[in-house]
Design a protein around this nucleic acid. Structure first.
Length: 1003
RNA sequence: GCGGGGGUGGCAGAGCCAGGUCAAAUGCGGCGGACUCAAGAUCCGCUCCCCGCAGGGGGUUCGUGGGUUCAAAUCCCACCCCCCGCACCA
């Protein structure tokens, strides 16, 4: 069977599982249940390796629990809700070439299909169909009878969402409010990240507007993020080349840029434009500053961007690098000044004002930052860097100076808010939203901020709700545990979440059908719908029978089955059956997801369960994992390293993918997909088949020997380790142990025994194949039947460690042997000899007795007493010799480590017996004759008197061979140029008694 | 900035919570050997540096710098660097 096609094996067993309806799970009161869920994937594209990783973890757990005898439900569904699909359709409508190309080339969508994607519904249906095939070919243990998709296109699900939102509204958890969004004036809709050609990650920021009063009575309105700096204002900047307007804003006379006036209209302001004029007309005019009442002049500055906020800023040259630079430019270049009829003398007289005390800077941080970074002028890109540097420092560490009136001595971060609030109270300031960088909509229109009214929010601010969420988190297991802190933080930090949108796919809000429940908001407790979906899919329940009364009863136990039956026309028994099924499966036992969902979905998941369900139905555990990286980089379509799952499956088949990913990482680490790794796994699976074949064909019936007992004993430990790891979703540790470490165990065993024992092989393979099943379920099905079992290994019981097979004596014997082999090999290496004969000498009886004392010794300082005691007894040598031997024994004990030396307190190895038994192995290993002696044996062959070196658990060794360098037995010494001759002064290993004991310390 | 997770040998990645058995699992790669007509696969050995004709010894390592300890990859402090999340978006 030299060539095993794992892809074929995968297909074969997927079909078999499907035909056997293996993973269809129904309530069984006699079996405990486990309900496992994977967050339904969004259907705007193909599933990729990232989905595969998370799904493989969920599947491994599902299969593990199933084998442990649990009734496991692992369902699947598809997420259609949201605007991303609509956005994608829009791009296709507009003929976005790069986008279309990526769909064809990367996603593998046929071109004629892509054209039909102008209809979002077609697109989600297409991807759902394609991805369903992919998930099936990945071979997950899914109960497909419960499959569904979301949004209004699925009436049943939509009714479920409607029910949930009515409940939330009733409970006062939905509130109404206003909110600024990034808005496309052409699409008349919010522009999310996915809908943007440019400006990803940009969100509205709130500017403080200060009203600087012109002598004409109009307000020149300047925008700032740093309202506290008003105390250091020296002048006002406008762009002389920009167009400004006089405009009545809510009746107040403002002067702002033309662009600003348009923006304000969408920010709940009444805006009446009076007249347009050029910025240069403002230059040289005087204004009265708010807050301070200072008289300032208006200067020209090219850095002022009319499309940002109001297009007017005030100058704080002491603390804002750009302001300092602009002022310096003006002072250096009088020609520009005279053009506007300004007085150069006055300009030169303007000095920065120092208003903030901050460590690491002198009076004028802006000036220093400009000098340190060597910023040339206001157009130098490093000006931005200088601004950030000063801003961060001053914000976090700055204190307002004495010239800041009542804010003197207050930290900047506090003063900032106070100054602005008080100025607003007095009518000297206002606010507006704007985007710090341009955002361009998919439709190529520049976006601006719009304040949406009547927006609906989930009130995550509600303290009672937060308290419940914390309580739920406390009773949920989190894997890895560190994520708990993130969720806790998120619960505290969450504010109102806008849960409705105007566009995209989704369920209309029950209280106002012009709104659609937003995508994250409809995915919070949907796992409950898997129970209902089974009945809807089978046709036993019609979607329109899913009334609020129905859900109240089935999900909450409120009302009666009779009432539901009467209202819906369903048989009472059916209603009760569904209720029972819900009670059986709920709550969710494990939800597995990527770490990106921690701060939104997973937290919402907890929140909503608390809001809707009683505490015994709250989630039991949540597992989080990292993101798949490809060749060390984040997987991204634009990076060209995006790997859709269907392509990977075609190339490798499901099991290879699973192994590579699961072995890649656990916890929050990111698994890295590398071609070498996939190749290595593929050949290893091939070899798994031959290894197992070899084991079986070589196996012989025989009495169990020590190595057989060792193998069985180690096997028990491995079972325990894998089980423990899987219980905690440590999938990497689990597969590492089950596959790789066990492989090494088996390799050692095979080498050790020449031919394995049938009994061991049977036991070993039976266990091994089952332990591997969660990670490579198809391959193990194939192996399982080859071992002569009936399908399916998926249903085979999970192995349990057998205490009777744990054999400390055998494990000790094999450790002993390994150390001996290492020693011999080390000698051979040093002497570079090809051995002809190896003699091994086991230590004398008196040494063995002595070593027992050493093992018991708690403190090496008691050694002296031991020496005195023993020296008097018969059979022991002189105190002098004793002390030498004892020190060596101590070293042996230390080198054993605490585990092994404590094991030796429980058992005593018969070294001679073990060596006699393993003589054949040693001879094979070293390809020469091996002779075993007792040190006490008068007839032993020991020409160099090595035997006296023998210590308990460290036998002495004597080797004869070819090419030997020892003059003692050959007299021949190959010349070795450059190496100085003999080693004078005896062994360097001798350590003085007292020092040595101190070195040992406590052991 | 806030919150979370990390920095280990040529690479990937354990170990760190419970300090000593750690020059440090396992896999990949590299080198040598076995097998083979040969290649691949497989098996065995080696893979930080130095010394050693007997299983040994010495040196330098686990982001950087300090500290605690008889003893630190592991504990404490400071610093540097990397990754992830921070909302109307799946």
């Amino acid at each position: 069977m030299s060539n095993v096609d794992t892809r074929k094996i995968c297909e074969k067993w997927q079909k078999a599982w499907q035909e056997a309806r293996l993973f269809e799970a129904d309530p069984d009161p006699n079996r405990p249940k486990v309900f496992i869920t994977f967050p339904f994937p969004y259907m705007n594209g193909p599933l990729h390796l990232g989905h595969a990783f998370t799904a493989a973890r969920a599947d491994a757990y599902a299969r593990f629990k199933r084998m442990q005898g649990y009734n496991v439900l692992f369902p699947w569904a598809w997420h259609w809700t949201g605007v991303a699909v609509a956005g994608a359709s829009e791009r296709i409508k507009l003929g976005d070439k790069r986008f279309i190309e990526s769909l064809v080339k990367i996603d593998g969508v046929p071109e004629e299909e892509v054209r039909k994607f102008v209809d979002p519904e077609y697109m989600v249906r297409y991807y759902t169909k394609a991805n369903r095939e992919v998930v099936k070919r990945f071979g997950l243990a899914i109960d497909w009878r419960r499959e569904f998709y979301t949004s209004h296109l699925n009436e049943g699900f939509s009714r479920f969402v409607t029910w949930q939102y009515r409940k939330l509204l009733e409970r006062g958890l939905i509130v109404k409010g206003t909110h600024p969004v990034v808005w496309c004036p052409r699409c008349k809709s919010p522009t999310g990240d996915a809908d943007r050609l440019e400006g990803c990650g940009v969100s509205p920021e709130e500017y403080i507007l200060y009203k600087f009063k012109l002598d004409s009575g109009w307000f020149l309105v300047a925008a700032t993020f740093r309202p506290e700096t008003i105390f250091g204002a020296t002048n006002v900047w406008v762009n002389p080349d920009a167009t400004y307007v006089k405009v009545l804003v809510d009746g107040e006379p403002w002067i702002i840029s033309k662009e600003a006036a348009i923006k304000l209209q969408d920010q709940l302001r009444r805006v009446e434009v009076q007249e347009e004029f050029s910025g240069r007309e403002l230059i040289g005019q005087w204004v009265t500053a708010p807050v301070t009442g200072a008289r300032l002049i208006v200067f020209p500055a090219s850095f002022v961007d009319p499309s940002l906020a109001t297009g007017v800023v005030y100058s704080v040259p002491g603390h804002a690098p750009l302001d300092y630079l602009a002022l310096r430019d003006l002072q250096r270049d009088p020609s520009g000044v005279s053009r506007y009829g300004l007085d150069p003398e006055y300009i030169r007289s303007i000095k920065p004002i120092s208003i903030i005390l901050v460590e690491g800077f002198g009076d004028y941080p802006a000036v220093e930052a400009v000098e340190r970074l060597g910023v040339k002028d206001q157009l130098d890109p490093r000006a931005e860097e200088a601004t950030q540097l000063v801003y961060k420092r001053e914000f976090h560490q700055g204190i307002m100076k004495s010239n800041c009136g009542k804010y003197a001595g207050i930290p900047v971060r506090e003063a900032k808010v106070m100054v602005a609030e008080e100025a607003m109270k007095r009518g000297e300031a206002s606010t507006m939203y704007d985007l710090p960088r341009p955002v361009i909509c998919r439709c190529t229109t520049p976006c601006h901020v719009k304040i949406l009214e009547d927006q609906w929010f989930l009130d995550y601010e509600n303290d009672d709700w937060k308290a419940l969420a914390h309580a739920a988190l406390d009773q949920t297991q989190i894997f890895p545990e560190g994520v708990r802190e993130s969720i806790r933080y998120t619960i505290d930090w969450l504010r109102k979440w806008p849960c409705t949108r105007r566009t995209g796919l989704g369920t209309p809000a029950p209280w106002d059908r012009s709104w659609i429940i937003e995508t994250l908001s409809d995915s919070t407790i949907y796992m409950a719908y898997y129970i209902v979906a089974k009945y809807v899919n089978s046709g036993r329940v019609k979607p329109n029978q899913l009334t609020d009364t129905f859900f109240d009863y089935v999900l909450l136990g409120e009302g009666t089955a009779e009432a539901v039956a009467e209202e819906t026309g369903l048989p009472v028994e059916t209603v009760e059956e569904i209720r029972r099924e819900f009670e059986y499966w709920y709550p969710v036992d494990l939800r597995v997801s990527g770490k990106d969902l921690v701060s939104n979905h997973l937290t919402f998941f907890i929140f909503h369960h608390c809001a809707i369900f009683p505490s015994h139905l709250w989630p039991r555990s949540i597992a989080v994992n990292g993101f798949v990286r490809v060749r060390g980089e984040e997987m991204h379509k634009s990076k060209g390293n995006f790997i859709p799952l269907h392509k990977a499956i075609e190339q490798y088949g499901s099991d290879v993918i699973r192994i590579v990913l699961l072995r890649g990482a656990e916890g929050l680490d990111d698994p890295d997909w590398r071609d070498e790794a996939t190749e290595a796994v593929r050949t290893r699976i091939q070899h798994l088949f031959t290894l197992i074949d070899d084991l079986r064909t070589q196996a012989e019936a025989r009495q169990l020997r020590i190595e057989d007992r060792w193998m069985l004993s180690v096997l028990q430990r491995r079972i325990a380790e894998v089980t423990e790891a899987l219980e905690r979703m440590r999938t990497r540790t689990a597969i590492e142990t089950a596959f790789y470490l066990m492989w090494s165990d088996i390799r050692r065993y095979l080498r050790r025994c020449e031919r394995p024992a049938k009994q061991v092989v049977n036991k070993l393979l039976d266990v091994w194949v089952r332990l591997l099943t969660p990670f490579m379920p198809h391959v193990t099905e194939e192996l399982w039947v080859r071992l002569g079992n009936q399908p399916f290994v998926a249903d085979a019981p999970w192995p349990k460690p057998d205490k009777d097979l744990v054999d400390e004596y055998a494990e000790e014997a094999e450790t002993y042997l390994d150390r001996l082999v290492e020693d011999i090999r080390e000698i051979l290496r040093v002497v570079s000899v090809k051995p002809r004969l190896i003699c091994i000498y086991v230590a004398s009886n008196w040494k063995r007795e002595l070593f027992k004392q050493v093992l018991k010794l708690e403190d090496p300082r008691h050694l002296g007493r031991l020496i005195r005691e023993c020296a008097q007894q018969e059979g022991y040598p002189s105190a002098d010799r004793l002390s030498k031997v004892l020190k060596q024994m101590l070293r042996v004990k230390i080198s054993m480590g605490p585990e092994r030396s404590s094991r030796l307190l429980r058992i005593e190895l018969n070294e001679l017996e073990v060596l006699m038994e393993t003589k054949a192995f040693l001879e094979r290993e070293f390809r020469c004759e091996v002779r075993i002696f007792n040190e006490d044996d008068p007839d032993k062959y020991d020409p160099l008197s090595r035997s006296k070196q023998a210590l308990p658990y460290k036998p002495a060794v004597y080797i004869e061979g070819e090419g030997a360098r020892s003059p003692a037995w050959t007299g021949h010494r190959p010349s070795k140029p450059g190496v100085p001759g003999s080693n004078p002064g005896g062994p360097a290993t001798c350590v003085r008694g007292q020092e040595y004991l101190e070195d040992l310390g406590r052991f």
